[in-house]
Every structure is written in C-alpha cells, then in structure tokens.
Deep mutational scan, measured.
Amino acid sequence: KLPPGWEKRMFANGTVYYFNHITNASQFERPSG
C-alpha cells in the first residue's frame, strides 16, 4: 500500500510512475512509508 496521497499511474507508453494528489509531486520510484 502506498503512503497517503500517492497513487500509481501510467503514461501512454506504459511507463509506470507515482503521483501524489496532495502535493502534486510525481516520481518513478515507489514512495516508501
């Protein structure tokens, strides 16, 4: 399970990334916590 605010998303080319809808942060590494 991801930390609060984070969700797993995917680009059109299939690349997975993680987006935080609270802070609008995005990253390729899975957030810890």
Rank of each mutant, 00 (worst) to 15 (best):
H21V: 15
H21I: 15
L2W: 04
W6P: 00
M10A: 10
Q27M: 07
R9K: 09
H21S: 14
A25G: 07
N13Q: 04
V16N: 03
F19S: 01
E29W: 09
A12M: 09
A25I: 14
W6D: 00
V16S: 07
P3V: 03
Q27Y: 05
E29N: 09
F11V: 05
F28A: 08
Y17L: 05
V16P: 08
A25V: 15
G5A: 06
A12E: 12
Q27W: 05
H21Q: 11
K8N: 03
Q27I: 07
P31F: 01
I22E: 10
G14R: 02
I22K: 08
Y17N: 01
P4D: 11
T23I: 05
F19Q: 02
Y18M: 00
R30A: 10
T23F: 06
G33W: 15
K1M: 13
Y17T: 02
N20I: 02
K1Q: 15
W6Y: 01
K8F: 09
N20Y: 04
A12D: 11
V16F: 12
T15R: 11
P31I: 01
F11Y: 14
N20H: 05
A25L: 13
P31V: 02
K8Q: 14
K1N: 14
N13E: 06
N20R: 01
I22R: 08
L2T: 03
G14P: 00
E7T: 09
K8W: 08
P3K: 04
H21E: 08
I22W: 10
M10K: 10
P31H: 01
K1S: 14
A12K: 11
R30S: 08
W6I: 01
N20K: 01
P3C: 07
S32A: 12
K1T: 14
E29D: 11
T15V: 14
R30W: 12
N24G: 15
G33L: 13
Y17Q: 03
Y17R: 02
A25W: 09
E7M: 06
K8G: 05
H21F: 15
Q27R: 06
I22D: 09
Y18R: 00
Q27A: 06
E29A: 08
L2G: 02
E7P: 00
R30L: 11
